[in-house]
Design a protein around this nucleic acid. Structure first.
Lengths: 168, 168
DNA sequence: TAGTATGAGTTCAATGATTGAACCAGAGGC
DNA sequence: GCCTCTGGTTCAATCATTGAACTCATACTA
């Protein structure tokens, strides 16, 4: 009774979650982005169990999201950095942070804010369409069967719905 | 030895993850958005255990992300819908799906694509700054201590780093 | 009237995952 | 030699997930 793997669900969201969908990985990535790169620092900052951190870092490295780099050879010491794939997750984590600011704000306000250095403003992220620059929301998206569409675990009911209605 | 809760970490990302950071919730939200709204449909589509789905739906409802609505009274039958907070997660999930398309694409291509109905193009999401409309990436963000900044679990090391360097 | 179907859950034993504490190992400093 | 620093590993206890079986209320059917 292993935890259900999402790796074989033909959905890119499921595959993303397979890589970073566990309880700790997003916070590990946040810390790596913010400059907390060493094993002991991550343990201290997150309060994560050491063996679990080991497993997560190995998994993130295998997923191509994190890179293990020696910063000292005698004795061998390593630190962790985001790969290109990992760096591309940063805006998404920032967007999720903004959602938390809006809907789950701590009493005393956000402990960390971001400044968009290109314009100097405090960051308010927006998710937009690359083609028209219009904002994306739940009511201007139409799901469609893609090139890999077929009925399989994780999309059985969805596939029927998409086939039946040609979009919501 | 309960699973570590993120609720008391003064970080909005942690608070977001407290609500939707578990293994199944993002997929449940995806299905609700795509029109899979009933208990049995969710079980069939996701292959999730029924008792776990019950717990997740209760937790999502308590977090204000999902709403339970009767669609029939005799016998009582319910379906689930996204609240406003839940709907605002949709673009983030879509962005995460796009990341999966780019870095973890299944062999046969994405089974689901989205069309931005405002412009008719196949969706390529971008995360931008609301002020200058410039794209956000790892190298044009500067983290800063926010109004709620203080040393506490989950940000101890980060707080030191931010205080010391005034940003990366 | 009895039997079956439907939908939304609940209960439960088995097994995997997480936790926290203790331990290990290489190197440098005193 | 002994202590410290850093980056782990090992282990027992406990928690979470899984999958199957079961409940409950009502409707449908013969």
């Amino acid at each position: 009774m292993e935890r259900t793997s999402f790796a074989n669900i033909p959905c890119s969201l499921a595959r993303s979650l397979e890589a970073i969908g566990d309880w700790w990985s997003p916070l590990i990535l946040r810390d790596l982005f913010l400059g907390v790169r060493r094993f002991g620092e991550l343990v201290e900052d997150l309060g994560i169990s050491r063996n679990l951190l080991t497993r997560r870092l190995v998994a993130l490295e295998e997923a191509g999201i994190v890179r293990r780099e020696p910063y000292e050879t005698r004795p061998p010491r390593y630190e962790y950095a985001l790969t290109e794939a990992g760096l591309e997750l940063v805006p998404i984590l920032v967007a999720l942070t903004a959602w938390g600011d809006r809907w789950k704000a701590p009493r005393k306000g956000a402990p960390i804010e971001f400044v968009h250095t290109d314009c100097g403003h405090r960051l308010r992220p927006r998710i937009v369409c690359a083609d028209c620059s219009g904002e994306i929301s739940h009511d201007n998206l139409r799901p469609m069967p893609g090139p890999g569409a077929r009925a399989a675990r994780g999309t059985k009911v969805i596939a029927r719905k998409l086939a039946g209605t040609a979009g919501l």
